[in-house]
Design a protein around this nucleic acid. Structure first.
Lengths: 189, 189
DNA sequence: TTTGAATTAGTAGCAGCTACTATAAAAAAC
DNA sequence: GTTTTTTATAGTAGCTGCTACTAATTCAAA
């Protein structure tokens, strides 16, 4: 095995390690790869990977930007218009983070956007999706902005039937019907 | 207005600024608050706010923790058993991160777990959920482990019909039917 | 055998700090 | 009115995890 190949293998390893967890210092990387710290730095520069602090900063920035997208906030996507009890719209730009896991994420996010918008419209303390029927019309591509429009179709007691249609431009990419129960507490039936 | 009050007001401002965006250096904070850098450092230590780099690191760690649950991985939940083209199971423990956004997350995650398991079973390069009909039977509580079982009901050409039932113990919490199209590339119809 | 890539070592300097000392001014206590 | 305390600022040494650079060494291919 030549040094060329060894190096390429190491570069690939380096990238993989940092992809899994970017929060390693050069020292740790050197230990893991069994090379000197200088080599790691040379490698990093060759691939164009910034230093630990910059990586942490970037991840943090991404988080602060996207958190609104999933974990922190109530709503996936940005609600641009909302009349509680009637209708609303929300926008969601598809970033790399949502597409990196190949084809799977799309469905999740479109569902999540539509579902959370539907829940927002109902606006009960613990609105809950009981049943949903959704349809993905076409995949969403990187950078596209999906606008979801939702309106309440019918309310029967605590049961709200909401229709959501999501578009990129005026092309429908997703549609669904959500049956959302407005409860006052989280009790098991 | 005494110096005491002035200081308290400033401390509150400092906390608020960093809550909105923790990625400011002491210098920037000093500029914003109209005081010296030393004062900012004294203030930070008094409240117990770590330095910029540590804050960035913490935000990044938080992100990487959550992200592994959603964006980073192909599968939401851990696949415990899988026969490609036939059936599979996956487990997902509901953590605080998934519940913190009150009642909304549940639906997303249950859907995501089921959807990604269904996609995993089909195992085409770009399997895509075209249509789904799902039902949330009861809310999932913190710490509960949800086991999703999926099996292919029928295959018609590229269209796979998959049924997923998710349980906590032997109680059904979620069920759904997924129509998944196995494509060879991401083309628009 | 020579050439050149790859690896390692080492230095100076930087950002953004901590930890510490010192000093001046303002406010509170006496 | 003077002493004491709090608050604000200044400045230094040292830290981590780097960059940018120079230099030496190893090792494989030509």
């Amino acid at each position: 095995m030549g040094a060329r190949e060894k190096k390429e293998v190491r570069l690939a390893k380096l990238e993989k390690i940092l992809q899994e967890n970017p929060l390693h210092s050069d020292g740790e990387l050197a230990r893991r790869l069994g090379v000197s710290i200088q080599t790691v730095r040379l490698d990093r520069q060759q691939i164009g990977i910034p230093e630990l602090r910059e990586r942490a900063r970037q991840v943090a920035v991404e988080h602060l930007k996207d958190t609104r997208t999933f974990t922190g906030e109530e709503i996936v996507g940005e609600v641009t218009y909302l009349i509680v009890g009637k209708e609303g719209t929300s926008q969601l730009r598809f970033t790399e983070a949502m597409l990196q896991s190949s084809s799977v994420a799309r469905g999740h996010y479109l569902f999540a956007q539509a579902n959370s918008l539907a829940v927002a419209i109902v606006d009960a303390p613990t609105a809950m999706t009981a049943l949903s029927r959704v349809r993905n019309r076409r995949p969403v591509l990187l950078g596209e902005v999906v606008e979801a429009k939702a309106h309440i179709v019918k309310v029967v007691g605590a049961r709200n039937i909401i229709r959501v249609v999501s578009r990129v431009g005026n092309e429908i990419v997703f549609s669904g019907k959500f049956y959302i129960i407005a409860r006052d507490r989280l009790s098991r039936p």
